[in-house]
Design a protein around this nucleic acid. Structure first.
Lengths: 191, 191
DNA sequence: GTCTATAAGATGATAGAC
DNA sequence: GTCTATCATCTTATAGAC
C-alpha cells in the first residue's frame, strides 16, 4: 500500500523542529527542502513567505498544546498529578533532541516578528496561565496546595519558571537539571 | 577637547545591544558598521569572525555582571534588599528598549555556538546561582527568609524564574508584568 | 503541485592600498 | 587601523515550464 505524502504537513513538521532547535533566524527554506527531499520553490507554493510558514506552525502548535492540556483535565484526578503532567509536556521537548518550547524560542526573537505573531505568542502564554490558574485555584481551595501568593500570581510565576527551567536545562546539557528544578517546585507548592 | 574614540569598545557595545535585541542570527556586521559609522572590514580587523565578537562581548558582560553583584554585597544590608537589587538588574535591561539578558538570548540560540561559548553561558548562570544561593542561605538561617526547598534548590528556581519573567514581560509588552511577578515572588519567600 | 531557472540582495570574510 | 574592492555563498522570493 502506498502512503500518500502530505507535503504541507511535512513542511510544517520540519519547520517546527528547526525553529525549536535553531530559532527563526537560524534556518532557511533550503534546510527544510533538504530535510524532506523537495525544492525550495515547492515550499513557497504552500507558504509564500517565511513568516507565513512560522505563523501557521505557531497556530497549529498552540492548538495541539491546548488539546493536550484538555486531555490532562480529562484523565488526571489530583491537582498534583495535573501539575506533573504539565511539567512532563515541557520535558518532552527537551527529551526530543533538547528542543525548546516553540514559543520561548520565538519570544526570544520577538523583534523579528510583526504584531500578529506576537499576539499568537501572548495567546499561548495566556492560555497556559489560565489552565495552571484553574489547577492551582482548585487545589488551593481543596487544601491540596499551599502558597502565599494569589492563585493567578502563582500561575504566572509557574509559567515563567517552566520557560526558564527549559532554557537552563538545555544550556547545562543535563535534563536532570530540569527534573530537579521541577520536583523542587512541586514540593514547595504541594502540602 | 577632542575625545579619542575607542572603536573596539564601540563595536562591542553595539554588538551587545544587537544580540540582546535581535539575537546572534538576527544581526550582521553591516548593522554594527552602520550604527557606529565605520566599514565592515574594520570590524573584521578587531574581531576576525562573528563568534570571536560575541565571545568577547559575552566575557565582558559576565565580568560586569559579577562586579554589579559584588557592589550589591558591598552596599545592601538586608537579604530582601539584596534580592530586590538583583531583580532590579534584570529589570534594567527591560527598561532599556526591552532588551533581554544577553545570556538568555544566546541560550535560546545555543545550537548556533561551539563549546567555548556554551561554557561561558553556563558560567554566567552558575555564578548567578551561587550569588543567590549565598543570599538565600544567609537569609534563611537568620530567619529573614522562609522556603521549604533547600537554599540551593530555591536559588536555581529563582534564576529560572527571572529568566522566564524577563522573556514573558517583554513578550507581553508590559514591564508591569515583570514587576508583578517579582513582587509576588519576593513576598512568597520573605517572611 | 512540483520543478528549473533566476533574480536581487544580504552575509561572513579576505586581500591589499593608504 | 581603516579603507575600497571583491569573493563565494546563502537567503528570500518570483516566473514560468511541466
Amino acid at each position: 500500500m502506498i502512503i500518500k505524502r502530505n507535503t504541507l504537513q511535512e513542511i510544517m513538521d520540519t519547520g517546527l523542529i528547526l525553529v525549536q532547535e535553531r530559532g527563526y533566524n537560524g534556518f532557511s527554506y533550503a534546510d527544510i527542502a533538504d530535510a524532506i527531499g523537495i525544492r525550495k520553490a515547492s515550499i513557497h507554493y504552500h507558504f509564500p513567505s517565511k513568516q507565513d510558514l512560522v505563523q501557521a506552525v505557531l497556530r497549529r502548535y498552540r492548538k495541539e498544546f491546548m488539546y493536550k492540556l484538555q486531555q490532562i483535565n480529562d484523565q488526571d484526578p489530583s491537582g498534583k498529578q495535573k501539575l506533573e503532567s504539565f511539567f512532563k509536556l515541557y520535558r518532552e521537548t527537551l527529551e526530543n533532541n533538547t528542543k525548546l518550547c516553540l514559543c520561548s524560542m520565538m519570544a526570544a526573537e520577538l523583534n523579528s516578528f510583526p504584531t500578529e505573531i506576537r499576539d499568537e505568542l501572548n495567546q499561548f502564554f495566556k492560555a497556559n496561565t489560565v489552565w495552571v490558574h484553574d489547577v492551582l485555584e482548585q487545589g488551593k481551595s481543596s487544601g491540596e496546595f499551599s502558597f502565599s501568593n494569589s492563585a493567578l500570581g502563582q500561575a504566572k510565576t509557574l509559567i515563567a519558571f517552566v520557560q526558564g527551567a527549559q532554557l537552563l536545562s538545555r544550556t547545562s546539557g543535563d535534563i536532570g537539571y530540569y527534573d530537579s528544578l521541577v520536583s523542587g517546585y512541586i514540593s514547595s507548592v504541594v502540602q
